[in-house]
């Protein structure tokens, strides 16, 4: 079954016909070419596919495209303003939080959601907020440093 949905992605309004079983991940990558969204498992285990839906970080691989109807989606591609990276992106670059970069899109999205809430968090709380993301390269250390640097500002 196909469904017509209306939503915005990175600030642009879209209207699309999607399949009822299609995931948001498939729609973003396949139909909209937003390949910054990564797929590491397809079942909600790794967090690589994280995007923001109405400001909330969700695993787009286990979120139906149809549920995006009427919502505001944000992906990695929409964060920078021209050449100006958003603070989280900049912090990831500055603190060496990027290695292979495959987990990076998801982590940057979650950290952006955290930063935009503007709430002060303890180190343990930061860990908890990021705990839905797996990274095999960094041992998470520079990611923690980058996120904490943003939250402190």
């Amino acid at each position: 079954m196909s469904l017509r949905i209306h939503f915005s992605v990175n600030g642009t309004h879209k209207e699309l016909l999607v399949e009822s079983g299609e995931t948001l991940l498939e729609m973003l990558r396949g139909r909209l070419g937003l390949t910054g969204v990564k797929r590491g498992c397809s079942v909600g285990e790794c967090g690589a596919c994280t995007v923001l839906v109405d400001g909330l970080n969700v695993d787009s691989c286990i979120y139906l495209a149809a549920w995006a109807d009427g919502r505001e989606i944000r992906t990695l591609e929409g964060l920078a303003d021209g050449d100006d990276l958003n603070p989280v992106q900049q912090a990831f670059v500055d603190h060496g939080a990027v290695q292979c970069g495959f987990c990076t899109p998801g982590l940057v999205m979650t950290a952006t959601a955290m930063a935009e809430k503007g709430i002060k968090l303890t180190r343990d709380e930061v860990r908890r907020e990021l705990s839905g993301h797996l990274c095999r390269c960094t041992g998470y250390q520079n990611i923690m440093t980058a996120v904490e640097a943003v939250l402190e500002d």
Partner: peptide, 23 residues
């Protein structure tokens, strides 16, 4: 020196293309 990776920017902006990204 702790110089920054030239590929970090392409990776944080989603421009870096991995195999799956060549459509």
């Amino acid at each position: 020196k702790s110089l920054k990776r030239p590929d970090a920017i392409t990776k944080v902006t989603g421009k870096a293309k991995y195999v799956a990204d060549y459509q």
